[in-house]
């Protein structure tokens, strides 16, 4: 057992903890924030099942983005869908390979190219389109660079310099049972894993929160039924019940936020 293996073991436990707890807390925070008004972007579904269908089209096909810009849509769609395949392929490091996992292995393998092309396209837009360049902060470029580096280092191991994936599997399955197993001594693997850990650490405090966030977006997840069903938030109800016009007139002992 090497020092590096133990260090990486601890790193991934911490990263997983930050990712799960951080994202979980953020989702809880968003979900419990009041939504005082009905603001779906209309035309909007008039039933809850309609909202589910709208959200499905949004997160699977990126419908709004498709209407907005075909290039951005194409590159974003390529990247995200390929990422799913690549992630699915990676589950083999955590579980036994069944018929489904073996079926998608080649798809996940070559999806990495699609993923990289998508990321390169997004980076190209960020650099070349004056409007997009104007709105980009250093972190927006770094995020793409991070994803590209993760993709490239992974592809290196798949297509150029193979690493001992049985050992990698042993390492991660070990972590799942709080047991240390060694990692192969491969610099590319260490780079790949380090970058993934960084991604996991920054996920809950970055724009990557768009992934869970979209499900909580009021303009997309609200049912268009304001005339049929009265919608009111707790803090607005407080104004009503205390018969006050302005929030600072509310009695002090009341909860500040609804």
């Amino acid at each position: 057992m090497t020092f590096v293996s133990i260090l990486y073991g601890l790193l991934f436990w911490a990263a997983t903890l930050v990712l799960v707890v951080g994202v979980g807390r953020k989702i809880y925070f968003y979900a419990t924030l009041p939504v005082p008004l009905k603001i779906p972007t209309t035309p909007a579904p008039v039933t809850q099942s309609g909202v589910v269908w709208r959200m499905f089209r949004e997160v699977v096909f990126f419908q709004s983005l498709f209407r907005a810009n075909k290039y951005t849509w194409l590159f974003a769609f390529m990247f995200h869908m390929a990422l799913w395949l690549v992630l699915l392929r990676h589950t083999r490091y955590f579980m036994e390979i069944g018929p489904f996992l073996s079926f998608i292995q080649p798809f996940g393998k070559y999806a990495s190219f699609v993923m990289l092309i998508g990321l390169a396209g997004l980076l190209g837009r960020r650099l070349l389109v004056d409007r997009v360049r104007y709105i980009s902060a250093p972190s927006d470029f770094l995020m793409l660079a991070l994803l590209i580096a993760i993709g490239l280092s992974g592809m290196m191991m798949t297509f150029v310099s193979h690493t001992d994936i049985t050992m990698v599997k042993g390492f991660f399955r070990g972590l799942m049972t709080f047991d240390f197993h060694p990692l192969p001594a491969s610099p590319i693997l260490l780079v790949h894993l380090l970058l993934v850990a960084i991604l996991m650490f920054i996920f809950p405090i970055s724009k990557l929160m768009h992934a869970p966030g979209v499900f909580l977006s009021p303009t997309r997840n609200q049912v268009d039924n304001p005339r049929e069903k009265r919608h009111i938030s707790a803090w607005a109800l407080e104004l009503e019940q205390q018969n006050k016009t302005y929030l600072d007139e509310l009695k002090q002992d009341e909860v500040k936020h609804g």
Partner: peptide, 23 residues
Amino acid sequence: RHRYRSLQLYLDICVKCGACTDK
């Protein structure tokens, strides 16, 4: 940002994709 989920969420989750820039 504690009264309007829209505000808090929209400040956090924009990825700067640029889809809105010409709208």
